[in-house]
Simulated assay, not measured.
Amino acid sequence: MNFWLIDDDSIYIMIARRFLEKDGRATKLKDFQDGEVALQQLRELSGDREELPDAILLDINMPFMDGWQFLDEFKKIQNKLAKKITIFMVSSSVDERDIVKANSFSEVKGYLSKPLTQDHIQKLYSELM
């Protein structure tokens, strides 16, 4: 499976990479510290099923484009992408409003609280299968 990590926290990205690599089902991992850069990549790779991610782990709070803004822009381009991409929100926020808002997006399959754990990875895969 091809995963994209969109988060400005380099330590989180390192931990998430380790969990995904340890599990062994992730065949490609790409990370972005800015949602805008990730959106540009999605646009450029829109017809390439092999390079597009199967799933995106998306942070809410980022400096240039936050997760909510990313989702708003993603909704505009998702029908132009060569495959369906599943998005999981990953955040340190336990604010119920963030969880409800994330679940209001049909593009979001789940909400995972940081710190990421191996149990989170198992839940993620069960949602993808």
Rank of each mutant, 00 (worst) to 15 (best):
L57Q: 07
I77T: 06
N79S: 14
P115G: 05
E44T: 01
A26S: 14
E50P: 03
V108G: 06
I13H: 11
D8V: 09
E96K: 06
H120R: 10
Q69K: 14
E44G: 00
D95R: 02
D98R: 01
Q118D: 14
M89R: 04
E96I: 01
L52F: 05
S10N: 13
N2C: 07
K114Y: 00
I11S: 14
T86V: 12
S10R: 13
L29E: 12
I77G: 06
K80R: 06
T86S: 14
L124G: 12
E96P: 00
L71Q: 00
F32M: 09
T86E: 13
A38Y: 05
I13G: 12
I87P: 04
R18S: 14
L52T: 02
D9Q: 08
S104Y: 00
K80M: 04
Q33G: 15
I85R: 03
D31K: 09
L20A: 08
L116A: 10
E36C: 04
D95I: 04
N103F: 08
N79W: 03
M65W: 00
R49M: 08
Q122P: 05
S113R: 07
V94D: 09
S46K: 12
L45M: 08
K114I: 03
N103L: 07
K101D: 01
T117A: 13
E127P: 11
L112M: 15
N61M: 05
S46G: 02
L124S: 11
G110S: 13
S10K: 15
V37W: 05
R17N: 14
L58C: 00
R18Q: 14
L52V: 01
S113C: 11
M14W: 13
W4A: 04
Y111P: 11
R43E: 03
S46M: 08
D7R: 08
A55G: 10
K101Q: 05
Q118K: 13
K80N: 09
M1F: 13
D59N: 08
P53K: 01
L29W: 11
Y111D: 06
G110I: 07
K83H: 05
L81R: 03
I13Q: 14
Q122G: 09
I77E: 04
A26H: 11
S126T: 15
E73G: 02
V37E: 13
S92Q: 06
D31I: 10
A26Q: 10
L20R: 08
L112T: 10
L57A: 09
V94A: 03
I85W: 03
K76R: 15
V90F: 06
M89A: 09
D59M: 04
S91V: 05
L45P: 00
N79L: 10
D54R: 09
K76F: 07
I15E: 12
Y125W: 15
L57K: 06
Q69R: 13
K109E: 12
A26T: 15
N103I: 00
K22M: 14
A38V: 03
L58N: 03
T86D: 13
I85K: 02
A38L: 04
F88E: 04
D54P: 04
V100G: 00
K30Y: 07
L57R: 02
D95Y: 05
D8P: 09
L20K: 09
I13S: 11
N2Q: 11
G110Y: 07
S46P: 00
K114D: 02
T27Y: 11
I85T: 03
I99A: 01
E44R: 00
I11N: 13
